[in-house]
Design a protein around this nucleic acid. Structure first.
Lengths: 243, 243
DNA sequence: AAACCCCATATTGTCTACATATTTTATTTA
DNA sequence: TAAATAAAATATGTAGACAATATGGGGTTT
């Protein structure tokens, strides 16, 4: 009975976000569409078209596009429009580097703060990942794999870092869409399980090493050897035009 | 003469950002106003008023406010308006924790990649910091101190991490405005100098330790013992109302 | 006199219209 | 026929108008 403050504060927080549901709804739908590969990288996102689809004016669409642009999921070219981002190999390496750096720290925090329930939740998530992998549901696996890393950030208990990881995970999904070579190896779930075991045992150092190895393995599964599009053009034509 | 691609790509990049200067100009001005404490935390940012000040419509103002909101410099309350953020002590601790985590990694990268010019630039920046400190120019010092950390991120060479640090530095400035107790200690410049010496010597481990200590020292200079506003209210009145 | 309700006012959320920039297409010329 | 140019069409950038929501004051009721 005493101390209703937390509940009140929570309700207040919910109240604060209860409105502008249109923005959020459209944002979620567009993000999902991009991450589930229904919108390929490079696709033009016409304001009029999107407005018609979601039955809102361009004003609302622009708000959503600007939000997605800030998260680097779409790129806005002034006076030309918004496009689904096509991360360059350099950008891909950068994102993975940032993830190694941040998630190494996050996993150490998570190892310190994890509860029994957290461990159970994580194991449950890996189990579902494995199911998607077994059934060949690539899209679901990419999303669930990202959710696993996001859950670790939430366990670490820092909202700022969680927001950054959410962003990086989204961008990674986009990168995987573009650069994944061949089929995905099934070892990923095992790596996730190893990480759970490490933080369950409170072994920060091991957990950190496993996380870095895991992200390195992810990067190794990508074909990032090629240069950026423009440079490619010059490289491709230099043989004939420069001779 | 051969390989004009990089230059072409650079020009293209400049072209891409040459427009929408209005957004950027107003964004920069508002950010400066907030970080220089001309707009205090909690200040209502009326769309009409700002539109009148900058001589643009609310459309443009809203775009800028949404951008600042995404960077957590302003808070948008639906149907109520935008306000300069008032970071809670919890949020302050979170930001400093995120900075320790990210900047430890960044300083290691910077130590690996720094050039002679970088070191000179950094020493020059610290020198200017010292001048502002000596002349009692608090505002300039806060900005320059942030620029130092931002420069380190640029040396590390990861644009994603640089963007995150820029955001965290801005938020830290806002936090300092709210929670700095007493005068600022002059040791900060010395700490920056020590960090430069460490990365100049290529001593990653030392540089990382110094950076963490430095950020801890920053946090220790803040008065973060109080709880968040809401909780405060309940704590304050619980003695009388609950008896 | 105090508390409550309703309405007036002001501000934000959204839509539509117009201005400006880009892209496409059609026409002209070499 | 192909290239270049001009004009039309299309899309984005901005402004202003209307709708919805929150705030504050005045009046009524107990």
């Amino acid at each position: 009975m005493s101390r209703t403050a937390p509940t009140a504060a929570l309700n207040l927080a919910k109240e604060a976000t209860r409105k502008t549901p249109q923005n959020d709804r459209i944002y979620e739908e567009m993000l999902a569409a991009i991450l589930e590969q229904r919108l390929a990288p490079g696709t033009k996102l016409s304001e009029d078209t999107l407005g018609e689809i979601f039955d809102v004016s361009r004003t609302v669409v622009r708000t959503v596009l600007q939000r997605l642009a800030h998260e680097r999921i779409v790129q806005i070219q002034p006076n030309r429009g918004a496009f689904v981002s096509e991360p360059s190999p350099e950008e891909a390496r950068e994102v993975l580097q940032a993830r190694r750096l941040i998630e190494e720290g996050v996993i150490r925090l998570a190892a310190k703060r994890r509860t029994e329930k957290d461990i159970n939740d994580l194991r449950q998530m890996v189990s579902e990942e494995q199911q998607s992998l077994d059934s060949g549901n690539h899209q679901a696996w990419v999303r669930q794999s990202g959710d696993f890393h996001l859950k670790l950030a939430k366990i670490a208990g820092n909202q700022t870092l969680t927001a950054y990881i959410r962003e990086l995970v989204s961008r990674t999904s986009l990168i995987i869409v573009q650069y994944q070579k061949g089929n995905l190896s099934s070892c990923s779930c095992d790596e996730h399980t190893e990480i759970i075991d490490a933080i369950n045992g409170g072994n920060e150092e091991l957990a950190a090493e496993l996380m870095i190895s895991h992200l390195n393995a992810c990067e190794d599964q990508l074909s990032l050897q090629n240069e950026s599009p423009e440079s490619d053009l010059f490289a491709i034509f230099s043989k004939t035009s420069n001779s």
